[in-house]
Nucleic acid binder design. Structure first.
Lengths: 206, 206, 206, 206
DNA sequence: CATGAATGAGCATTCATTCAT
DNA sequence: CATGAATGAATGCTCATTCAT
């Protein structure tokens, strides 16, 4: 209403900074509206730049998505629940606890990241590049789970009859399923995880 | 399903038959290409009718999707693994076995239905109508699981320390996670289900 | 200024008529501004239709150009100087006179058609489809010239030492060169043609 | 020409040298893809400079084209078939032979230059500046032809009944038409020129 | 019930050009 | 002299939807 005519002051950023900024906006847009809702124009507008400028940094929409994919991978690599990283070096039990707290951390504090992740998983069947990314992420995660379960079996912190490979699949599926189905606030998340943990441990009593 | 491609031009069908045909085609299109790949023109063409005719039966695209949703619900209600229906009336153990075989049945014989289901779940966060449908389906499924687990606890076929509500959530999450992540042929499905089943049972020995 | 709000009355035409109308407009646009100046939006606007309607009849710009090409071919096939058609059956001299009057006819009365022709010839090196069209047109024209020259040599109406194939090439090149170079009004066209004709005839006297 | 592709980045060249280099690249680009295919960015890239640097030397695209036009004119002024220049001073017959060998020279050895020339002629109807250039080139050429034909008439090396002005037009048109229509290798060029020459000479015998 | 013509709003992408550095 | 970031104005094309027949 006030300053209509004033054209925005052509802010000049380094390519790296601009890319990062645009990717963050795109990340947000995807989190909110999914891939279907991703319009280069919208991203540009929300990033405060002309859509041609966006295409200057990301020649095609696919390039932009690739940038978001890289960011997603980066976030999963660097963002962890406090202390979960160090726990891995200690006992299997501690490592498993770390896994649980990471899950809680993402579901409670990194819902936007999970939303984007969900979109990528949903798109994977129709986009080989994304399929590869998703496969990588899952393979990495599954690997650590298998290691943890194997160690836990050995040191007695987990039930002796564990099929550690299948167990990793169940764990991963259950967590992913919870993420994919969770729409509102994950009220009973901890209860579910507690149950899962209980099943993994040696049966008390008897 | 039925014969989608080779319908003679200008065939005059009853509204109901036409609707059913169109929905089947749309079901197929969504299974293949997701919601993103859903074009009313494509559906019309594959149904052997003009796109205007499609809009005659389904005024908006959303109406068509609602039709597909109804069809999805119908299929889940009527299609079950052979024998799984009757098993529910018998013991809790039998009912649980029925659940397992239903999962196997869908993952092996109804992949198209699951693909559409996956699409609906993915869209739920952004479409209240779909969110409701999905919530309904899950609530129904969760209900039977809770019942089964409660009964199993009582009759000793399942572990005594089961939190039957949380267990239902874990089960449902794990199955859904497996469905959502499964891209290629689910080779190790049975191994995963066996592990899950093992965890649910009272620990043998000791 | 007067009736602003009145949306244009969605005139409904048969596909054939609409196509014809659009092609005529495109013909005109190309004649004026060349291929470089051809914008589907402009053609649509000048044809009084929405640009989406244009794409309904011509899915791609290339399809539109193909339509113009067909029209060009059609015009060359059907439009001739009065009497030139019949002259071909008579003597070689009459046929040659017919060729001359056709050239005059097009240069004086069908400048628009020639302008489009010029564009197609100019584009031929970079468009195989157009190259083929142009080659066809030239081959047909050259064929009649060769026939005429051969007959003229035989009946003595043309010089005896004529290399009729080379002569056809010279004639065609000269006419085309004149067309391609002519920008303003072709004032001295007749004088040039007279000279060419003189060269073809047996030298008088001496 | 020179080394277009492999110029080291950030080389600081004198304005004149840079201009020359850029023009040569543009010349090449136009020869290959016509005016339609001329992109300032492409030219800049192939010249090993930033597109902004190109605009530093040629403020607008039109300026660049003007540079190419000047280069074209320069080439036509300086490049001739060996010996053709000196022949002009001798007899009319020798001068005409020089014209013929120039035509052969350009069609066989300077096809790139002709390609650009063709583009300029094609653009002339829509660009007054280019129209002027083309008119100049043609006027100069036509002038020498008229002079030659007049002299040839006088000294008996050409037919006595020649209309030397019209003859110049026919010659120029024929050559230009051949250039404009030639797509592949001009195999029968010499045969065509021989025929043209024959027509110009006094008829032998009788 | 069925259709083909018609459309508005939109979409990714292109390109000559500008400008601060 | 040189550059990379930035932009406005297109441009061909898509798609759900409308409407007269």
């Amino acid at each position: 209403m006030t300053d209509l005519q004033t054209s925005p002051p052509r802010t000049r950023l380094s390519a790296e900074l601009r890319r990062k900024l645009v990717i963050d906006v795109a990340f947000d847009v995807i989190a909110r509206g999914g891939f279907e809702g991703l319009r280069t124009r919208d991203v540009a507008a929300q990033a405060g730049i002309n859509s041609a400028t966006l295409h200057h940094h990301f020649p095609t929409k696919e390039d932009l998505i690739a940038g978001v994919a890289a960011e997603l991978q980066h976030r999963f690599k660097t963002e962890r629940a406090p202390g979960s990283e160090e726990a891995r070096a200690a006992s299997a039990a501690a490592a498993l606890a770390g896994e649980f707290s990471d899950v809680i951390f993402y579901l409670e504090e990194r819902q936007q990241t999970l939303a984007v992740y969900r979109e990528f998983v949903g798109r994977a069947p129709r986009d080989p590049a994304i399929a590869k990314l998703v496969a990588n992420l899952h393979a990495g995660w599954r690997g650590s789970l298998v290691t943890i379960f194997a160690a836990g079996k050995k040191d007695g912190s987990l039930r002796a009859d564990l099929d550690h490979e299948a167990a990793a699949d169940v764990f991963l599926s259950a967590v992913w399923g919870f993420i994919a189905l969770a729409d509102g606030p994950p009220t009973d998340l901890r209860r579910v995880l507690a149950e899962l943990q209980k099943w993994l441990q040696p049966q008390s009593g008897r």
